[in-house]
């Protein structure tokens, strides 16, 4: 399988994702009890406005035509106009997106920077105190309600110690607490998988042979064990994107972080449906592309994928 067909296949996959997300949203919007035009206009809008909206969104057209128009709009990134601010949805989402990406990347960086070494160390020193610390952190991290952790961190660092801001994104240190909060649920599975795969790889014959041929322990671990263990760890890192997104929505709300997640939540309460739809559409699209990027990373690590399997 060549590199081109790999990407073609994945791009078709993304197209399917985008299509299904849009159809899902379309069905959802049409299944709202009551008149969608009235919902879009707001409950106390005068009938003329409702009628205007009905025409503007083509709600008088037959359903298949509505779907076709809707899809056409999405393909041209015409995500509509915010009911609340009357600005194009795409602009608003794009202005918030950097914050979400910044928060997610910072959290992922912390999770990887702590999780992989911790898991590896726990495996190398199995049954030591650090191993128990790693296992405990894994269990608690998986079970931790993100919003509660966030509030506890605010309580400790912002309210008690007064050394870090409790929310917003005004100062450079604003990122610290949200990033820490969001990193924990992502760190837990990374640590767990690293520990597990390290233990597996350490038992492999090729590790035994690498030692036997006179390599230094450092070389054996960093060159052979680490790289082989990275393949499953990479899978788990890739799977964390969903976790990260869920965490981002909640963490952004806790810390009043001006990202897309908070935009979605705020828009829900403002009944700004075009905004909710548009933001979710963009998030799903990004999610699909990140997964594509993760899959391409495998090829960089594993020659068996790069060159095609089999002798």
């Amino acid at each position: 399988m060549g590199a081109i067909s790999f990407f073609t296949k994945r791009l078709i996959g993304i197209a399917i994702v985008v299509l299904s997300v849009s159809i899902f949203m379309f069905i959802l919007l049409r299944s709202i009890p009551g008149d969608p035009a009235r919902l879009l206009a707001g409950f106390d809008a005068p009938p003329e406005v409702v009628q205007q909206i009905r025409e503007r969104y083509g709600l008088n057209d037959p359903l298949p035509l509505q779907l076709a128009k809707y899809l056409e709009n999405l393909l041209t990134f015409n995500l509509g106009t915010s009911v609340r601010t009357d600005t194009p949805v795409l602009n608003e989402v794009m202005s918030r997106l950097p914050y979400t990406l910044y928060l997610s990347l910072a959290s992922l960086a912390i999770a990887i920077a702590v999780g992989i070494p911790l898991g590896a160390y726990a495996a190398l020193k199995k049954d030591s105190i650090m191993d128990y610390v790693a296992t405990g952190l894994t269990s608690i991290g998986t079970a931790m309600p993100t919003f509660w952790l966030g509030l506890m961190l605010i309580l400790f660092f912002a309210v008690q110690l007064k050394c870090l801001p409790a929310g917003g994104a005004e100062s450079a240190s604003s990122i610290i607490l949200p990033a820490l909060t969001l990193s924990l649920p992502v760190m837990a599975p990374i640590t767990k998988t690293t520990r597990f795969t390290f233990l597996e790889v350490l038992r492999e014959d090729f590790v035994k042979l690498a030692k036997a041929k006179g390599l230094r322990k450092k070389t054996v671990i960093f060159k052979h064990v680490l790289r082989n263990a990275m393949i499953p760890v990479l899978t788990v890192v890739g799977l964390q994107m969903g976790n990260l997104m869920r965490g981002a929505v909640i963490t952004e709300t806790v810390f009043a972080w001006p990202g897309v997640g908070r935009l979605v939540v705020d828009s829900i309460f403002a009944r700004d449906y075009p905004m909710v739809q548009g933001a979710i559409f963009i998030l799903a699209l990004i999610y699909a592309f990140i997964n594509l990027a993760v899959d391409s990373l495998y090829a960089a690590v594993d020659p068996r994928i790069r060159l095609g399997g089999g002798a």
Binding site: F24, L28, S31, I32, P33, G242, M245, I268, A284
Partner: peptide
């Protein structure tokens, strides 16, 4: 299975939020 692929490709929190936000 294609339906399952599609559902898997959207983060579950977004599905949940979209559902609850629109249906109440």
């Amino acid at each position: 299975m294609r339906i399952s692929d599609a559902l898997l490709s959207i983060p579950s929190i977004l599905i949940a939020i979209a559902l609850v936000a629109t249906l109440g």
